[in-house]
Design a protein around this nucleic acid. Structure first.
Lengths: 150, 150
DNA sequence: TGTTATTATTTAATATGTTAAATAATATTT
DNA sequence: AAATATTATTTAACATATTAAATAATAACA
């Protein structure tokens, strides 16, 4: 009857199909699916893999810098590092000059796991560039970097 | 001595700084931070908000379609819908024509919460477009949609 | 130097993510 | 129609995410 019957919907948010948070999550799922499958063969989770990769690339790091580079929150990282310690893939020791700091390093066994998955990981990255095009992927990474300005 | 001393690193993956999964996670964090802050005032998590938004936009849905649109896995969604039920923000009932299916719908109280956060959510979305530029955000959403082809 | 403030990390509590197994209803097959 | 297979959802178990509080070491300061 009156024009107010669905007034709750008059002012709308962007449709969920064009929602940035949801779109980012969906894309991430698409990328992670095959990576998780690969890692399950090594008994690793995605986050464990991320920690190993960062330590292999940057060398030993204290917990804070590790968490920044692996995009993990410290409470999560604490547990994940603990399981990596039990698996013998990383070491952890207090920094002698500031014993609050914990220095985490990858072990040779950890490096070996990276080696074991290197080919497949490269293949997966290449597949994405094949389907989407290298320019598109580069442009995407450039745009995502700009989010630091928010 | 020999050229093989660091041969473990000869074949490299893309640097973690240009890693698609990590870049997607970081961008998502940047977007979600202020949204989480907004939602905490309503006592909602990001996922609860997503379910309410999808139901408000698309109307009552069975669990599978809801999970597709909210990008949630069914086991997570089951729990989240349960808490939304307890809060009185959604209803759930078996589909009469196929009692395996559960139809979930938003309640007026749920719609009210969307209304309560509408202005702020729009403001946050606008802020992102101001900083990054509307064209950039649109291009990003276009690229992210292409991940469905993977 | 003893007290207080700050910093780095961990612990705790609750919510969600992920995979596999269980459940329950419908569809298929013989 | 009874047995079997398939489908939709939930339950279970473990891992991670998030926020707040606790811990422990260092820094700052009266």
């Amino acid at each position: 009857m009156d024009g107010e019957s669905d007034s709750l919907n008059d002012r709308k948010l962007p449709s969920t199909a064009r929602s940035l948070p949801i779109a980012l999550i969906r894309a991430r799922e698409k990328v992670m699916g095959p990576i998780r499958e690969m890692l399950s063969n090594s008994g690793l989770t995605e986050q464990q893999w991320r920690i190993l990769r960062v330590l292999d690339e940057l060398g030993p790091l204290d917990s804070t810098k590790l968490s920044e580079n692996a995009s993990l929150l410290l409470p999560s990282q604490t547990r994940i590092v603990q399981t990596l310690l039990e698996k013998g893939l990383v070491t952890r020791q207090a920094d002698p000059s500031d014993r609050r700091r914990q220095t985490v390093a990858i072990t040779p066994a950890g490096q070996q796991i990276i080696l074991d998955n290197l080919d497949e990981a490269q293949r997966l990255a290449a597949h994405i560039e094949t389907v989407l095009g290298k320019e598109t992927v580069d442009r995407l990474l450039d745009i995502l970097e700009e989010f630091d300005r928010l």
